[in-house]
């Protein structure tokens, strides 16, 4: 195990004493196989107990340790130090979100958007347990499975310039999850979700930058989901307005 000295520039913000964030540097003796989160844990354990940040699983499943590492939205538990050249790494809280304290951001806006799209199965018709399970073929599962991988880490929101410019935008992860339930053969809630999706602030605020899909640690591809929903919403619109006799 070889040791490597790395300087971490960490954005600090204490709402009780600071008017604005500032940068504190820490010299951390790192092991070569560490991830950025290991180094931050080292700072917390050995150098500065006052540093605040979120983390839990250390294996890219819980989605809580998202940070800007050298300006890129990253899960700090997945950011291997060997992939970073140079002796300085800058760590900041996820951009586009207000800073609560140090590396901790305010989640309220994302949580509100996530609930607004009803990310759960709304059955076409409730059926009693005696009638058995809702069956699904492998093909039907494949249709939406990719979008179930979302861990709500919000890296896509930090990457999305349109969310940064207009925080009314529902945003990548919430829309990808909308798509996930719309595509589920057991679900009948699409028309309810369309009320949110087909607004200006829904899919139409997206300009297909594609950054969300590039930073996603779970290959969910929110950008693809949103484009597919734009096409579906456009078909809806033309059917509704050009063939009104078809009904809604």
């Amino acid at each position: 195990m070889s040791e490597r000295q790395i300087t971490f520039e960490v954005l600090r913000y204490n709402p009780e004493t600071d008017d604005k964030p500032w940068v504190q540097t820490y010299a951390v003796p790192c092991q070569e196989e560490w991830v950025v989160l290991d180094a931050i844990n080292y700072i917390k354990d050995h150098l500065d107990t006052s540093l605040s940040y979120r983390w839990s699983c250390h294996m890219a499943v819980c989605g809580s340790c998202g940070m800007m590492v050298n300006g890129e939205p990253t899960l700090s538990c997945k950011a291997f130090l060997r992939d970073y050249k140079g002796n300085t790494i800058r760590v900041e809280p996820l951009t586009h979100f207000p800073i609560e304290r140090d590396l901790v951001v305010v989640l309220d806006d994302f949580m509100e958007k996530l609930t607004s799209v009803k990310p759960y199965i709304i059955p076409k018709k409730e059926k009693p347990v005696e009638e058995g399970e809702y069956k699904q073929t492998p093909r039907q599962l494949k249709n939406y499975k990719q979008y179930t991988m979302c861990i709500n880490c919000m890296l896509c929101y930090a990457a999305c310039p349109q969310y940064g410019l207009n925080d009314e935008f529902i945003g990548p992860a919430a829309l990808a999850l909308t798509h996930r339930y719309n595509l589920d053969s057991r679900d009948g809630g699409r028309s309810q979700r369309q009320e949110v999706v087909a607004q200006h602030e829904g899919v139409w605020e997206c300009s297909f930058v594609g950054a969300c899909s590039e930073v996603c640690p779970k290959d969910v591809d929110p950008a693809g989901a949103i484009q597919q929903m734009k096409i579906a919403s456009t078909v809806d619109w033309y059917l509704e307005h050009l063939m009104p006799w078809r009904g809604k």
Partner: peptide, 19 residues
């Protein structure tokens, strides 16, 4: 007392190559 970092409205795309 959450701190909001403003995004520069006309120059945001200078932040990285992807933009």
């Amino acid at each position: 007392k959450p701190y909001v970092r403003e995004v520069p409205k006309a120059t945001w795309y200078m932040r990285n190559g992807r933009y």
